[in-house]
Computed example of a mutant assay.
Amino acid sequence: MTLQNLLGTAVPIIQAPMAGVQDSTLTIAVSNAGGLGSLPCAMLSPDAMRTELAAISAQTTKPFNVNFFCHTQPEPSREREAIWRTALSPYFKEFGIDADTIPAGPGRLPFSAEAADVLSEFRPAVVSFHFGLPARELMTRARSWGAKILSTATTVEEALWLEAHGVDAIIAQGLEAGGHRGIFLSKDINTQTGTLALVPQIVRAVSVPVIAAGGIADAKGIAAAMALGASGVQIGTAYLMCTEAKTSAVHRAALKSAAARVTALTNLFSGRPARAIVNRIIRELGPISSAVPDFPLATSAIAPLRAKAESQGSGDFSPLWAGQNTSACREVSAAVLTQELASVLAVAG
């Protein structure tokens, strides 16, 4: 079975779910163009999720993907939070921010029964997960309306684990990928490998379709992934500049600049390693800091610094998510980008 048949799409191209830089508008555009549009839901409340899903359902009849994190929510630690805020205190002083007024918050929420309740109203064709898989009963609920299940593997061991737990396809996330690493069986970043090394190893190890992700932004990248045995590709960074994306002005400016050539894995913005363009906070505190609270509790303390800096046109404290290949970022519609990539696949086929 081809990936297109599995997902119900015209082409084996998945738009990576990118929380914080997109909403349903991008999802709709990609799905209507023949790819699999994705909606990131980890930062959405049940009501917000319902609103976005209603918008998608009203504007496309094509399959789409809803994406969730499935981490275990940590117990807040006053000690860890105090250490983190102390590390940030020079910046609070610089911007005139009273740290005592900053509320603690969850940042991102894992897939839950409440989220499944909302999904059951819309019955999306695909549900994908990051950081492993949710509890079996939640997986069963997603399957009850016929949804296909995808999840991310960053190692062969994770791919084997996902296959053993019943996923329909595996997203092989290479080290080049922007945003959060999907790593979940280990915390050792040294286990992470590049896309061209990872994809063929996972393809050999599992029997389900493998979707290549990380550093793929154009025709040559797609061709390379397919030559290594991938059944399809997931592309994120190339969509960041699209007109339907909600990428901020400072983020877009960074993507256009020479700064985009240098990215790093950093835990400063959430508590988990994620690839972003190197900016001031990464240079001065990181990229990896032991002061950061467990994911996703780091988010609340750094949020006011981001807001203050962005109000002054600076991305010094913003999570400027990007992969290692920003060469295809262009201010075009997501439909145009998807169709261009699809035409390459048609020629190759």
Results as ranks from 00 to 15, higher is better:
343 S>P: 01
56 I>H: 00
159 A>L: 04
177 A>C: 09
187 K>L: 01
174 G>Y: 11
314 S>D: 10
286 G>H: 12
249 A>Y: 08
158 E>Y: 08
307 A>Y: 01
192 Q>Y: 11
50 R>D: 15
74 P>G: 06
204 R>S: 15
38 S>Y: 02
149 I>R: 01
185 L>I: 02
52 E>M: 04
38 S>T: 04
94 E>V: 05
254 A>V: 14
21 V>K: 11
201 Q>Y: 04
146 G>K: 05
283 R>C: 11
159 A>P: 04
262 V>T: 14
224 A>P: 11
258 A>T: 13
242 C>Y: 07
289 S>G: 13
174 G>T: 09
345 L>E: 02
72 T>N: 08
244 E>L: 09
135 A>Y: 00
67 N>G: 07
321 W>Y: 08
60 T>M: 04
174 G>K: 06
217 A>V: 14
270 S>T: 13
303 A>M: 12
78 R>I: 11
130 H>L: 12
111 F>R: 03
58 A>I: 00
122 F>A: 09
118 V>W: 01
87 A>G: 15
136 R>I: 05
326 T>K: 10
148 K>M: 01
162 L>A: 09
119 L>I: 10
344 V>N: 12
222 I>P: 03
284 E>A: 11
180 H>N: 13
32 N>W: 03
179 G>T: 01
112 S>W: 00
342 A>P: 11
282 I>S: 08
125 A>F: 01
308 K>M: 13
35 G>A: 07
138 L>P: 00
92 F>Q: 04
216 I>M: 07
147 A>F: 09
141 R>Q: 14
144 S>N: 13
167 V>L: 05
306 R>N: 06
223 A>K: 09
252 R>N: 12
42 A>G: 10
205 A>D: 03
118 V>T: 13
46 P>R: 10
97 I>S: 07
232 G>H: 05
250 V>A: 08
336 V>D: 15
76 P>G: 02
80 R>S: 12
322 A>E: 03
282 I>Q: 13
302 I>T: 02
269 F>K: 14
270 S>D: 03
5 N>S: 14
182 G>S: 06
215 G>Y: 11
246 K>H: 14
54 A>Y: 01
250 V>Q: 10
126 V>K: 03
260 A>M: 06
5 N>E: 13
16 A>F: 00
217 A>T: 14
118 V>Q: 04
185 L>N: 02
19 A>M: 05
107 G>N: 06
206 V>F: 02
347 V>E: 15
264 A>F: 00
13 I>W: 06
29 A>H: 02
334 A>I: 09
260 A>V: 11
342 A>R: 09
166 G>N: 01
189 I>Y: 07
212 A>R: 03
302 I>V: 15
135 A>Q: 12
310 E>S: 09
59 Q>N: 15
145 W>Q: 12
274 A>F: 06
96 G>I: 12
282 I>H: 04
150 L>N: 00
9 T>Q: 13
198 L>Y: 00
313 G>H: 07
318 S>G: 03
114 E>V: 05
76 P>T: 06
180 H>P: 10
131 F>R: 00
287 P>N: 06
237 T>V: 06
201 Q>S: 14
259 A>N: 07
344 V>F: 14
43 M>K: 10
205 A>L: 06
177 A>Y: 01
96 G>M: 12
